[in-house]
Simulated assay, not measured.
Amino acid sequence: MTAAAQRLLPILLILLATSLSQGFNHLTQRVLGGVKVCRTSSNDQTTRLLMSYDVENETKRQLYNIKNSSWKSNEWNWGYARGTGHDCASICRRRWSDKADRKKLVDALLNPEAYHSKHKSYEVPFEEVKLILGLLWQRAGRSHAFNEVLENMVDAKRYELDDEVLSALNFVTDVRDAFPDVALKKSHVDHMNAVAGEILHYHDHMVDRVEAFRIRRVCAGMVLEDMGFIENGI
């Protein structure tokens, strides 16, 4: 070994140890799913809040305390006049009939950390957010890219996996890919790509589930905003 190589070896070993440590931290966060550590995003340079996340709002399938009210339930019957899907849709439309409430929801989705830190007990479960999106996409008809995402929701496989992180990653991937079809500005598409890219460039086993849930909410908020949910409702 040359003298130059001997001088570089300690530096390389330190870099390797640092990389392995970071990978282990990501995996530990994935397994424990508890606390998201503070860090600075490489995309928006904003400091993430240190927060303990209530995963029930992200993983609970039942809506409005109605039995068998989930996309996977045989009683859901999306698109039909009878079924728990119809019952939940009626409640959802009434619940979000006020423009001010719709704006608060979109603001909360676009800034989930800030909202969560102040209004944890009032946070809207993501299953309800999915229902809102489903009703919005249904209302928009079949002439947009999100029709395929809606079909995936109705199929209740791609976003309803036992692995909640993989379900979130699938959702973020599909929303990102369909978003250019409805985005109001190219800058919005660029922002969607940047936000989704914060987690999609990792292997799913290395993604912190708190981060996956956060990104999923932001992406949903961007879709609702650009598809006129605040102004027009569902």
Rank of each mutant, 00 (worst) to 15 (best):
G228S: 02
Y202D: 11
L224T: 09
H201Q: 11
N193V: 12
V182L: 08
F213G: 04
M192I: 05
I234V: 15
F229S: 05
V223K: 03
V210T: 13
D204H: 15
R217N: 10
H191S: 06
A220H: 02
N232Y: 15
N232T: 13
G221Q: 09
E231M: 12
L224G: 04
V189M: 01
M206I: 06
V195T: 12
A196L: 05
V210Q: 11
K185L: 11
L184Q: 12
D190K: 12
K185G: 00
V223F: 03
F229I: 05
M222C: 06
G221I: 07
V195H: 04
M227L: 10
V210E: 05
V207H: 06
I230F: 01
A183Y: 04
M192Q: 05
K185C: 09
R214N: 09
R209V: 14
R209W: 13
K185E: 10
V218Q: 14
E198P: 03
E211I: 11
L224Q: 07
G228W: 01
L224R: 02
N193S: 12
A194E: 08
V189N: 01
A178Q: 04
G197D: 03
F179P: 01
A212S: 13
L184G: 14
A212D: 04
A194T: 13
A220F: 10
K185V: 07
E211K: 13
G221R: 03
E231Y: 06
A196G: 07
H188G: 00
Y202H: 15
I215R: 07
G221N: 05
A196C: 11
E225H: 15
H201Y: 14
L200Q: 05
P180H: 08
D204W: 15
I199S: 03
R216F: 09
E198F: 04
E198R: 10
